[in-house]
Design a protein around this nucleic acid. Sequence first.
DNA 1: ACACTATTTGCAACTGGTCGCAATTGCATC
DNA 2: GATGCAATTGCGACCAGTTGCAAATAGTGT
Lengths: 151, 151
Amino acid sequence: MTQHLELVQSLRQAGHRLTPQRESVLAVIADSHEHLSAEEILARVRKRYPYLNKSAVYRSLELLTELGLVTLTDLGHGRVEYELHRHPHHHHLVCRKCKSVQQIDHRLFQNLQKKLESDFGFRADLDHFAIFGTCRKCSTRTAKNPKRHSH
Amino acid sequence: MTQHLELVQSLRQAGHRLTPQRESVLAVIADSHEHLSAEEILARVRKRYPYLNKSAVYRSLELLTELGLVTLTDLGHGRVEYELHRHPHHHHLVCRKCKSVQQIDHRLFQNLQKKLESDFGFRADLDHFAIFGTCRKCSTRTAKNPKRHSH
DNA sequence: ACACTATTTGCAACTGGTCGCAATTGCATC
DNA sequence: GATGCAATTGCGACCAGTTGCAAATAGTGT
Ligand SMILES: [Mn+2]
Ligand SMILES: [Mn+2]
Ligand SMILES: [Zn+2]
Ligand SMILES: [Zn+2]
């Protein structure tokens, strides 16, 4: 597993320990190509490593996020979702009506990011944002026909 | 109270009822010039109107937000914070190190907002965003001197 | 291989926020 | 100003996530 080496290095470098809990949480996230909730991560880890506690999952996720290996966001599904932090990173447009989630490129945020740095000296962490609003389908549908939304 | 009329109109127009709970929640928010947590709102309302339930506060806040009278955001203080939705709206830069909160103008987001609409047909709700990162002070401090942060 | 200890884990209690449901009430109509 | 009823509230149970603390363990040194 290519992620394993990166994990060990990052942990060592910051003075943390490599525990089976952390290792297995990262493995589950690295193996998935969707956003995963903490509950889902816990369930998947337990298939291979049954003695894992809820707190350990949350604490591992927090650490992996600090180390930059994992990224999280609230996509409006009632719980936070986690994903491997791949480069270049991406963001999401979430429709409040049909709940669709669309991926967008980080480049759209680069102007804003530069302006915040030049105007305020503020270095914004803009990885994995969720922007809520109304998607094209739902805008046009409600404009002409006041019917119920669908996914 | 100038907000009262606006509330009554908005409620009626959308087929909602004017209850003392909703009225007093809005009054507390309108009287404050800071961000308030739900807990703080509950405490302030109870000074005048002691029989108010936690659920009623959250449900009133949800409705007032839908009606566009109130806006909320998570500024990283462990609970969501509410504020009267004044125009033009504003956003915040939150420093992860010193926890400082800085206000910025909505105009910084207008290019992004237009691009999302033109490229994806997505109408983004961009009122009252919180952007996390590192402020100027904390960037320069950690660059030259690896000391503890302050507020 | 063994001892040492600071870090990490498991657990249970707690917190902020949501939800289902029965009791209450705003408001429309007479 | 009384009646009727859908909208709203209060309440308690619940859910996702956090925290304090005692027990366990990764990693260092011998
Ligand atoms: Mn994503
Ligand atoms: Mn604000
Ligand atoms: Zn949509
Ligand atoms: Zn700072």
